[in-house]
Design a protein around this nucleic acid. Structure first.
Lengths: 330, 330
DNA sequence: CTGAAAGCGCTAACAG
DNA sequence: CTGTTAGCGCTTTCAG
């Protein structure tokens, strides 16, 4: 038994001939080692848990992809759970991960408190991707280790700079659900606008009613107010908005400029093609897994990081004469 | 030990008072039962494997969501792997599932042969969602049990009927990568067109070069040919195409009608809103998990099923005078 | 280099 | 109703 175990794991101290023989017979028998049994003795499951809000969102999909890719490349399997922005769901998922003894856990877009879940999960390394706990607005209070996110503030600064350069004056922010990232992006826009133009206040709309639907009345209001440019919480919201505004005869970019956030694949093929802030989502997922792997290996969680973003200028902000110094499109 | 084990699983034969006491102490100690140890003795892991081509595709995301939801509702955890349309990746993933002793496995959009993988996975129930093995074109040769897909043929028939009713004559099919579903959809369009109009041949384009990119030269050709209507393999391709055609001054629906397949969330907010065939993707994922669960419970795989689809008429096919009898848009 | 024995954390069968 | 015992399938000493 011991020899078979060693042979199958390419242990050095086993004669090449016996190894071959073992492998051959194993294959003939259709023998597949039982990881559960192994994990019991080595106290490691070669498994990573990944909690996402909803597999349906394109950004989440990219993060999942990067995460799974990195994990698989190192022989780890990923357990996936949807939290649906619901605390009970999230807790249940974490409990599952704990029972399965995931060697590491990544929480993406979760509103759970960081300290709390770290201590609940005891010795298991935990990484927070785009943490949404209310206290996190501004992104200054992420823990020093194991947190990961894009530099949203910088992204919004570039957005505002771009819009101002193009001659847009009356900017509006169209918000999401009041999550940490929503607040952060809104505040970043407001601050950047104030810096550029101290006397121009930022108009803020929150058109998302319960259930993620858009409040049509508010769309009518926006159509009436007709700001110069709408900076949206994310690409999806930007598209929903443009779609609804179209029914009010308001078209981007002729009547309003529109900016998204995230650069989902669709942004580059929409009509109009959407100006947006690109985040390296796949890389974020990949690095989240890498951090976990490093923490498992070295027993020390790597420091938190913020990944750079990039403004992508496309058609949705291009009716006015182009300013100077902006990045090329595509 | 045995009493603790029973108490924590709400076994009936344990005194309520002891149960309470056990639960209390367990919580205080932060005790979490080890599933690996349990699975060793009960010979079940409460785990389902899900193989998808790429978490990035919106349709896959919806399937993942439904699958995970159903699994979680029954206490099962899902292990996710991306196959990237690569046989080696897929095989590695299945091997992982086997080592972890997943109680059931779902392969989505895989080109692996059904019989072969069933026998490889031995006693583990396997479900095939949208199987893409080349032999599957036409969808007549899915195995009798454990296969799941949408009724693409019916969907395409409705598309053709709709287009003909609207007065479009010169139809073209714009294909994907020659997968089983691609062939099936193309043939369905061709057959339906022949039935409606025996002398009108179907023009077929295959613009996807290696790496999923679109061959620009072919787009120019399409722009030159200017068929009446483009029936696309899926929504994503439809959008890519409309985007590229726009550069050639060809706009939908004024210059060509365009139809997609899948009804991704974006289809309803795009400009123009896309006429497409809606599949119940979340439900497909949910039912795939349900089939697996049933197979685990009854030791018998439920019969294969084909889910109904629905034509959704939107702006991208509406420049001509509307025909009669078509479904309303939304 | 190979084999025998102990034990990872749990559940099931069996006594009490 | 509770406790004792014997494994589940593997890896890891420790002897040969």
């Amino acid at each position: 038994m011991a020899t078979v175990s060693r042979a199958l794991r390419d242990h050095p101290q086993v004669n090449e001939r016996t190894r071959k023989r073992v492998v051959t017979v194993a294959r003939r028998l259709g023998y597949v080692p039982n990881r559960a049994a192994r994990s019991l003795v080595v106290r490691a499951t070669q498994t990573l848990g990944l909690l996402i809000p909803d597999a349906t969102d394109p950004i989440h999909g990219e993060i999942v992809k990067g995460f799974e890719q990195e994990a698989a490349a190192h022989g780890y399997t990923v357990m996936l759970a949807n939290g649906f922005d619901d605390e009970a769901h999230e807790r249940r998922a974490l409990e599952m991960f704990a029972m399965h003894r995931a060697d590491g856990v990544a929480l993406m877009g979760s509103a759970l408190p960081q300290r709390g879940t770290r201590s609940t999960l005891r010795a298991t390394p935990v990484v927070f991707v785009n943490g949404e706990h209310p206290s996190l607005a501004g992104y200054r209070s992420d823990l020093a280790r194991g947190c990961l996110r894009a530099d949203d503030v910088r992204g919004m600064e570039e957005v505002v700079r771009h819009l101002i350069a193009r001659g847009y004056r009356r900017l509006a922010y169209v918000g999401g659900r009041g999550s940490a990232s929503d607040i952060t992006r809104r505040d970043a826009v407001r601050a950047a606008l104030k810096r550029a133009n101290p006397h121009q206040p930022l108009c803020v709309y929150r058109p998302r009613s319960a259930g993620g639907k858009i409040d049509e009345a508010l769309v009518a209001t926006i159509a009436g107010d007709r700001p110069d440019a709408l900076v949206c919480y994310d690409d999806k919201l930007a598209f929903q908005l443009m779609n609804l505004l179209r029914e009010h005869g308001v078209t981007a970019p002729q009547d309003v400029a529109v900016v998204g956030f995230g650069d989902i694949p669709f942004a580059r093929m929409a009509n109009p093609r959407l100006t947006t802030v690109a985040q390296p989502s796949v890389e974020i997922g990949q690095r989240a897994a890498a951090m976990l792997l490093a923490a498992i290996r070295t027993r020390r969680m790597p420091p938190s990081i913020q990944l750079p973003v990039r403004l992508i200028v496309r058609e949705s902000t291009t009716n006015r004469a182009a300013g100077s110094g902006d990045h090329p499109g595509r």
